[in-house]
Design a protein around this nucleic acid. Structure first.
Lengths: 142, 142
DNA sequence: GGCTATCATTTAGCCGTCTAATCAAATTGA
DNA sequence: TCAATTTGATTAGACGGCTAAATGATAGCC
C-alpha cells in the first residue's frame, strides 16, 4: 500500500506526539487551559518564582515562546510576573490564587493521560519505553 | 530536586517530540521547507493527486491545517491544486517540478534524522521501541 | 423537480512555536 | 570611569495546529 517512508520511526513518533497533544488539548480545554500552558504551571507548582530564563531552559523552548505564553496566562489571571529585586532585567513568575487552584486538576489530567498512554503495557514494558525514550532524547538534544 | 511531575512518561514524550521537531526544522530549513510540510510531500511522493481529505486523514490533522499549508506550499511553487473533474468539491494535490525535485533531499533528511534518533540502540531495541510506540499510538487514538 | 442534508474546502481568529531584530540593564575591561 | 559586551526579556512576523462558522457542490428524499 505504501512505501516505507511512513514506516520510519520518526514518522511514528510524530503521529504519537500529535495524538498525545490532541488528547491533552481536549482534557485541558475543559479547565480553561491550552496545551503547553500546563507545562509552565507544573514547573511553578514545583517551584514558584522561577525566572523566565529558567522556564525557557526547563521547557526546552525559545524565549519569545515563554514571553507570549506568560502574557496570555497573565491576562487570564492564572499567573503573575514581578520584577526581580536585585536584577531589574529578570522577571519572576508567580501563581495567582486562580492558578494555584488548578493544581489538582492539572495533575489529574496528566495522570489520566499517562495512564491512557501506557494502557496495556506491563511495568517492564513501561520502564523499557521510558529508558528508550530517554536515550532518544539524549540523541536528539546533544 | 523535582517532584515526580517531570518524571511522567508524557512529559518525556513531549520533550522528545520537541527535540525531534527542532532537529527536523533545522534540517528542513536548509532546503526551504518548514517542519510539517515534508509530511505532505512524502505522501505525495507515494501517491500524487491525493485529495485534501485524504491528506487530513493520513496526517491526523484538521482540514484547515491542510488548507493553509497547501496555500503556502502552492505560493512557493512546490505543489499545485486542481479541481477534481467529477466532483467539483474536491481538490486534488499534485507536485510541481520544484516539488518533485526535493524528493531525494527530503528523504535524506528523514533518513538522517531517523539514524540520529536511534543512535546507540540495537536492532532489537529499535524494534521494541517501534512496537511500544505503536501500542501507545493505538491507545491514544482510539 | 425542488428542498434538505451532507460533504469538501475555506475563512477567521486564536495559541504554541520559531527566527531575527530590538531594548534595557548588568557586567566587563581597557 | 566609561565604552563595549553580554544577558534577560520583548516585539514583529512567520508557520503549524486547533475550533467555530461560512461557502459551495453533491446526494437524498418526498
Amino acid at each position: 500500500m505504501k512505501d516505507d517512508s511512513q514506516e520510519q520511526l520518526g514518522y511514528l513518533l510524530v503521529q504519537v506526539c500529535k495524538a498525545h497533544r490532541n488528547r491533552a488539548q481536549a482534557a485541558l480545554s475543559e479547565i480553561g487551559l491550552h496545551a503547553g500552558q500546563e507545562m509552565i504551571l507544573m514547573h511553578l507548582y514545583d517551584a514558584e518564582g522561577l525566572t523566565q530564563s529558567q522556564l525557557v531552559e526547563s521547557l526546552c523552548v525559545e524565549p519569545p515562546t515563554v514571553t507570549k505564553m506568560l502574557q496570555r496566562m497573565e491576562a487570564v489571571g492564572i499567573v503573575e510576573r514581578r520584577q526581580d529585586a536585585e536584577d531589574a532585567r529578570v522577571s519572576r513568575v508567580y501563581l495567582t490564587p486562580n492558578g494555584r487552584a488548578l493544581e489538582t486538576q492539572v495533575c489529574a489530567v496528566w495522570r489520566q493521560l499517562d495512564d491512557d498512554t501506557v494502557a496495556g503495557l506491563t511495568d517492564v514494558e513501561q520502564a523499557l519505553l521510558r529508558r528508550l525514550l530517554q536515550q532518544v532524547h539524549t540523541n536528539l538534544t546533544k
